[in-house]
Computed example of a mutant assay.
Amino acid sequence: RMIQQGGLLEYIQTPLDLDEIGGMSNLKKWLNHRKDVFSPEAKAFGIVPPKDVLMLGVQGAGKSLCAKAIATAWQQPLLRLDPSTLYASYIGESEKNLREALRQTEMMAPVILWIDEIEKAFASAASRSADGGLSQRMFGTLLTWLQEHQMPVFVVATANDIEALPPELLRKGRFDEIFFVDLPTQEVRREIFAIHLRKRGRDPVRFDLDALARASQDYSGSEIEQAVIAALHNAYAEKTDLGTETILAALQGSPPLSATMAEKVSALRQWAQGRCVIAE
Protein backbone atom coordinates (compact mmCIF):
# COMPACT_ATOMS: atom_id res chain seq x y z
CA ARG A 1 0.00 0.00 0.00
CA MET A 2 2.86 2.34 0.86
CA ILE A 3 4.34 1.87 -2.64
CA GLN A 4 0.96 2.35 -4.34
CA GLN A 5 0.23 5.57 -2.48
CA GLY A 6 3.43 7.32 -3.49
CA GLY A 7 3.79 5.89 -6.99
CA LEU A 8 7.57 6.39 -6.75
CA LEU A 9 8.57 2.75 -6.25
CA GLU A 10 7.47 -0.39 -8.07
CA TYR A 11 7.59 -3.90 -6.64
CA ILE A 12 9.17 -6.29 -9.17
CA GLN A 13 8.41 -10.00 -9.38
CA THR A 14 11.65 -11.99 -9.55
CA PRO A 15 12.47 -15.50 -10.89
CA LEU A 16 12.31 -18.35 -8.42
CA ASP A 17 15.73 -19.65 -9.40
CA LEU A 18 18.96 -18.35 -10.93
CA ASP A 19 18.70 -21.15 -13.50
CA GLU A 20 15.93 -19.11 -15.17
CA ILE A 21 18.59 -16.55 -16.10
CA GLY A 22 20.93 -17.45 -18.97
CA GLY A 23 24.66 -16.77 -18.74
CA MET A 24 25.96 -14.16 -16.25
CA SER A 25 28.41 -16.72 -14.79
CA ASN A 26 30.75 -14.15 -13.18
CA LEU A 27 27.84 -12.23 -11.69
CA LYS A 28 26.30 -15.43 -10.32
CA LYS A 29 29.64 -16.40 -8.76
CA TRP A 30 29.96 -12.93 -7.17
CA LEU A 31 26.43 -13.25 -5.77
CA ASN A 32 26.94 -16.75 -4.39
CA HIS A 33 30.11 -15.66 -2.59
CA ARG A 34 28.19 -12.87 -0.89
CA LYS A 35 24.77 -14.38 -0.20
CA ASP A 36 25.51 -14.96 3.51
CA VAL A 37 27.41 -11.74 4.24
CA PHE A 38 24.38 -10.11 5.89
CA SER A 39 24.38 -12.68 8.72
CA PRO A 40 25.62 -12.00 12.30
CA GLU A 41 28.33 -14.65 11.71
CA ALA A 42 29.70 -12.69 8.74
CA LYS A 43 29.73 -9.50 10.79
CA ALA A 44 31.61 -11.25 13.61
CA PHE A 45 34.08 -12.51 10.99
CA GLY A 46 34.81 -8.88 10.08
CA ILE A 47 32.92 -8.70 6.79
CA VAL A 48 31.24 -5.43 5.80
CA PRO A 49 28.21 -6.22 3.58
CA PRO A 50 28.31 -4.79 0.03
CA LYS A 51 26.11 -1.76 -0.53
CA ASP A 52 25.80 -1.36 -4.29
CA VAL A 53 26.75 -2.32 -7.84
CA LEU A 54 26.58 -0.50 -11.16
CA MET A 55 25.48 -2.41 -14.26
CA LEU A 56 26.69 -0.94 -17.54
CA GLY A 57 25.94 -2.48 -20.87
CA VAL A 58 24.29 -2.78 -24.22
CA GLN A 59 20.59 -1.94 -24.32
CA GLY A 60 18.48 -5.07 -23.88
CA ALA A 61 21.47 -7.24 -22.96
CA GLY A 62 20.05 -8.18 -19.57
CA LYS A 63 20.85 -5.50 -17.00
CA SER A 64 17.32 -5.75 -15.60
CA LEU A 65 17.81 -9.51 -15.34
CA CYS A 66 20.93 -8.84 -13.31
CA ALA A 67 18.89 -6.84 -10.79
CA LYS A 68 16.40 -9.71 -10.59
CA ALA A 69 19.26 -12.20 -10.27
CA ILE A 70 20.57 -10.39 -7.19
CA ALA A 71 17.14 -10.35 -5.54
CA THR A 72 16.69 -14.04 -6.37
CA ALA A 73 20.13 -15.10 -5.13
CA TRP A 74 19.78 -13.24 -1.84
CA GLN A 75 16.07 -14.00 -1.38
CA GLN A 76 15.16 -10.34 -0.88
CA PRO A 77 12.32 -8.24 -2.36
CA LEU A 78 13.15 -6.03 -5.35
CA LEU A 79 11.96 -2.42 -5.67
CA ARG A 80 12.41 -0.46 -8.90
CA LEU A 81 12.92 3.29 -8.87
CA ASP A 82 12.36 4.99 -12.22
CA PRO A 83 14.16 8.34 -11.77
CA SER A 84 11.91 10.04 -14.32
CA THR A 85 8.95 9.71 -11.90
CA LEU A 86 10.77 11.88 -9.35
CA TYR A 87 10.69 15.10 -11.35
CA ALA A 88 7.84 17.50 -10.64
CA SER A 89 6.93 20.97 -11.90
CA TYR A 90 6.90 22.70 -8.50
CA ILE A 91 10.10 24.03 -6.90
CA GLY A 92 11.46 21.66 -4.26
CA GLU A 93 9.01 18.89 -5.13
CA SER A 94 11.52 16.75 -7.06
CA GLU A 95 14.04 16.68 -4.19
CA LYS A 96 11.20 15.86 -1.80
CA ASN A 97 10.14 12.93 -4.03
CA LEU A 98 13.68 11.51 -4.04
CA ARG A 99 13.99 11.77 -0.26
CA GLU A 100 10.57 10.14 0.14
CA ALA A 101 11.46 7.27 -2.21
CA LEU A 102 14.66 6.60 -0.26
CA ARG A 103 12.80 6.83 3.06
CA GLN A 104 10.19 4.31 1.87
CA THR A 105 12.96 2.00 0.69
CA GLU A 106 14.67 2.10 4.10
CA MET A 107 11.36 1.35 5.82
CA MET A 108 11.09 -1.85 3.78
CA ALA A 109 14.69 -2.99 4.41
CA PRO A 110 16.23 -5.50 3.95
CA VAL A 111 15.53 -4.91 0.28
CA ILE A 112 17.18 -4.55 -3.15
CA LEU A 113 16.69 -1.12 -4.76
CA TRP A 114 17.03 -1.08 -8.54
CA ILE A 115 17.63 2.42 -9.96
CA ASP A 116 16.81 1.94 -13.63
CA GLU A 117 18.68 3.89 -16.34
CA ILE A 118 20.28 6.18 -13.79
CA GLU A 119 21.91 8.32 -16.48
CA LYS A 120 18.54 9.60 -17.76
CA ALA A 121 17.73 11.27 -14.46
CA PHE A 122 21.11 12.66 -13.54
CA ALA A 123 22.76 13.23 -16.92
CA SER A 124 22.43 17.00 -16.56
CA ALA A 125 24.55 16.81 -13.41
CA ALA A 126 27.53 16.07 -15.65
CA SER A 127 27.23 19.37 -17.49
CA ARG A 128 26.00 22.91 -17.12
CA SER A 129 22.29 22.41 -17.62
CA ALA A 130 19.35 24.78 -17.88
CA ASP A 131 17.39 23.24 -15.02
CA GLY A 132 18.66 25.67 -12.40
CA GLY A 133 20.96 23.10 -10.83
CA LEU A 134 18.10 20.70 -10.02
CA SER A 135 19.86 17.63 -11.49
CA GLN A 136 23.03 18.45 -9.57
CA ARG A 137 21.13 18.82 -6.29
CA MET A 138 19.27 15.55 -6.90
CA PHE A 139 22.50 13.80 -7.81
CA GLY A 140 24.20 15.16 -4.69
CA THR A 141 21.35 13.91 -2.51
CA LEU A 142 21.59 10.44 -4.03
CA LEU A 143 25.40 10.26 -3.72
CA THR A 144 25.25 11.29 -0.06
CA TRP A 145 22.62 8.64 0.65
CA LEU A 146 24.57 5.94 -1.23
CA GLN A 147 27.61 6.68 0.89
CA GLU A 148 25.98 7.15 4.29
CA HIS A 149 22.80 5.03 4.53
CA GLN A 150 22.96 2.44 7.32
CA MET A 151 19.86 0.33 6.63
CA PRO A 152 20.32 -3.00 4.76
CA VAL A 153 19.42 -1.64 1.32
CA PHE A 154 21.48 -2.98 -1.57
CA VAL A 155 21.42 -0.69 -4.62
CA VAL A 156 21.62 -1.92 -8.22
CA ALA A 157 22.04 0.98 -10.66
CA THR A 158 21.75 0.26 -14.39
CA ALA A 159 22.97 2.45 -17.26
CA ASN A 160 23.19 2.25 -21.06
CA ASP A 161 25.14 5.45 -21.81
CA ILE A 162 28.44 5.96 -19.96
CA GLU A 163 29.00 9.34 -21.63
CA ALA A 164 25.92 10.72 -19.89
CA LEU A 165 27.04 9.63 -16.42
CA PRO A 166 28.65 12.19 -14.09
CA PRO A 167 32.34 11.30 -13.51
CA GLU A 168 31.81 11.15 -9.72
CA LEU A 169 29.57 8.12 -10.22
CA LEU A 170 32.32 6.16 -11.98
CA ARG A 171 35.24 6.89 -9.68
CA LYS A 172 36.99 3.91 -8.09
CA GLY A 173 35.32 2.83 -4.87
CA ARG A 174 31.99 4.58 -5.48
CA PHE A 175 30.36 1.20 -6.12
CA ASP A 176 31.38 -2.15 -4.64
CA GLU A 177 31.61 -3.46 -8.20
CA ILE A 178 30.93 -2.31 -11.76
CA PHE A 179 29.69 -5.08 -14.07
CA PHE A 180 29.60 -4.87 -17.85
CA VAL A 181 26.71 -6.76 -19.44
CA ASP A 182 27.59 -7.58 -23.05
CA LEU A 183 25.53 -9.27 -25.75
CA PRO A 184 25.32 -13.03 -25.10
CA THR A 185 27.89 -15.39 -26.59
CA GLN A 186 26.81 -18.28 -28.83
CA GLU A 187 26.88 -20.71 -25.90
CA VAL A 188 24.77 -18.37 -23.76
CA ARG A 189 22.32 -17.74 -26.62
CA ARG A 190 21.82 -21.51 -26.81
CA GLU A 191 21.07 -21.52 -23.09
CA ILE A 192 18.64 -18.58 -23.43
CA PHE A 193 16.69 -20.31 -26.21
CA ALA A 194 16.39 -23.44 -24.02
CA ILE A 195 15.12 -21.39 -21.07
CA HIS A 196 12.42 -19.60 -23.07
CA LEU A 197 11.30 -22.77 -24.83
CA ARG A 198 10.93 -24.58 -21.49
CA LYS A 199 8.99 -21.62 -20.08
CA ARG A 200 6.48 -22.11 -22.90
CA GLY A 201 6.04 -25.83 -22.42
CA ARG A 202 8.42 -26.98 -25.17
CA ASP A 203 11.22 -29.54 -24.82
CA PRO A 204 14.45 -27.84 -26.01
CA VAL A 205 15.80 -31.23 -27.17
CA ARG A 206 13.28 -31.12 -30.04
CA PHE A 207 14.91 -27.95 -31.42
CA ASP A 208 18.22 -27.35 -33.19
CA LEU A 209 19.60 -25.04 -30.50
CA ASP A 210 22.99 -24.78 -32.22
CA ALA A 211 21.38 -23.49 -35.42
CA LEU A 212 19.28 -21.00 -33.43
CA ALA A 213 22.35 -19.79 -31.49
CA ARG A 214 24.32 -19.27 -34.72
CA ALA A 215 21.44 -17.44 -36.40
CA SER A 216 20.97 -15.06 -33.46
CA GLN A 217 24.46 -13.56 -33.40
CA ASP A 218 24.43 -10.00 -31.96
CA TYR A 219 20.90 -10.50 -30.60
CA SER A 220 20.23 -9.54 -27.00
CA GLY A 221 18.53 -11.88 -24.54
CA SER A 222 15.29 -9.90 -24.74
CA GLU A 223 15.38 -9.99 -28.56
CA ILE A 224 15.78 -13.77 -28.44
CA GLU A 225 12.76 -14.03 -26.15
CA GLN A 226 10.72 -11.84 -28.51
CA ALA A 227 11.71 -14.06 -31.46
CA VAL A 228 10.42 -17.13 -29.60
CA ILE A 229 7.18 -15.30 -28.76
CA ALA A 230 6.72 -14.12 -32.36
CA ALA A 231 7.37 -17.64 -33.67
CA LEU A 232 4.82 -19.02 -31.20
CA HIS A 233 2.17 -16.59 -32.50
CA ASN A 234 3.01 -17.45 -36.12
CA ALA A 235 2.81 -21.19 -35.45
CA TYR A 236 -0.55 -20.82 -33.69
CA ALA A 237 -1.96 -18.69 -36.51
CA GLU A 238 -0.81 -21.25 -39.09
CA LYS A 239 -2.18 -24.14 -36.99
CA THR A 240 1.22 -25.83 -36.79
CA ASP A 241 3.50 -26.65 -33.87
CA LEU A 242 6.47 -24.50 -32.96
CA GLY A 243 9.68 -25.66 -34.65
CA THR A 244 13.24 -24.55 -35.34
CA GLU A 245 12.35 -23.20 -38.81
CA THR A 246 9.54 -21.04 -37.37
CA ILE A 247 11.94 -19.42 -34.89
CA LEU A 248 14.63 -18.95 -37.57
CA ALA A 249 12.06 -17.14 -39.73
CA ALA A 250 11.12 -14.90 -36.80
CA LEU A 251 14.80 -14.03 -36.27
CA GLN A 252 15.25 -13.13 -39.94
CA GLY A 253 12.18 -10.90 -39.80
CA SER A 254 13.51 -8.86 -36.89
CA PRO A 255 17.18 -7.79 -37.11
CA PRO A 256 18.95 -6.99 -33.82
CA LEU A 257 19.14 -3.44 -32.48
CA SER A 258 22.93 -3.79 -32.15
CA ALA A 259 23.22 -3.83 -35.96
CA THR A 260 22.27 -0.14 -36.03
CA MET A 261 24.40 0.68 -32.96
CA ALA A 262 27.65 -1.09 -33.89
CA GLU A 263 29.91 1.90 -33.20
CA LYS A 264 28.28 2.65 -29.85
CA VAL A 265 28.51 -1.01 -28.76
CA SER A 266 32.18 -1.14 -29.80
CA ALA A 267 32.99 2.04 -27.84
CA LEU A 268 31.18 0.69 -24.78
CA ARG A 269 33.15 -2.58 -24.91
CA GLN A 270 36.42 -0.68 -25.27
CA TRP A 271 35.62 1.54 -22.27
CA ALA A 272 34.68 -1.48 -20.14
CA GLN A 273 38.06 -3.19 -20.63
CA GLY A 274 40.03 -2.89 -17.41
CA ARG A 275 37.28 -0.86 -15.73
CA CYS A 276 34.51 -3.41 -15.28
CA VAL A 277 33.98 -7.04 -14.40
CA ILE A 278 32.37 -8.88 -17.34
CA ALA A 279 29.05 -10.28 -16.09
CA GLU A 280 29.31 -13.39 -18.27
Rank of each mutant, 00 (worst) to 15 (best):
T14S: 09
G62N: 08
G6L: 11
K239P: 04
L169P: 02
E187Q: 10
Q226Y: 13
P255N: 09
T260V: 15
Q270M: 10
A164E: 09
V53W: 00
I195C: 09
G57Q: 02
R99N: 14
Q75K: 15
P50Q: 07
S254M: 14
I21D: 04
K35R: 15
D241G: 12
R214K: 15
K63N: 08
E238C: 08
I91W: 06
R171W: 06
I247V: 14
R137F: 01
A215Q: 13
L257A: 06
G7S: 11
A227W: 03
A42H: 04
D203Y: 05
R128H: 06
D208P: 11
L8P: 05
A130P: 00
S127F: 00
G221K: 04
S266R: 12
K29W: 05
R206D: 15
P50F: 03
A267K: 15
S135N: 10
E148W: 11
N234W: 01
V111C: 03
F154Q: 02
R200Q: 15
K29P: 01
R202E: 12
R202K: 14
Q59H: 07
T246P: 01
K264P: 02
P256Y: 03
E93F: 13
V111S: 01
V205H: 15
D241L: 06
I12N: 04
E100Q: 15
E238G: 07
A227L: 10
H149T: 00
D52Q: 14
Q147W: 13
T105R: 00
L251F: 03
P50A: 14
A121K: 04
Y236V: 04
E119G: 03
L169C: 01
A164K: 14
P256D: 07
Q76D: 09
P40M: 10
M107W: 08
L169H: 02
A121F: 05
K28M: 09
R275I: 00
Q59R: 11
G7T: 06
R80V: 05
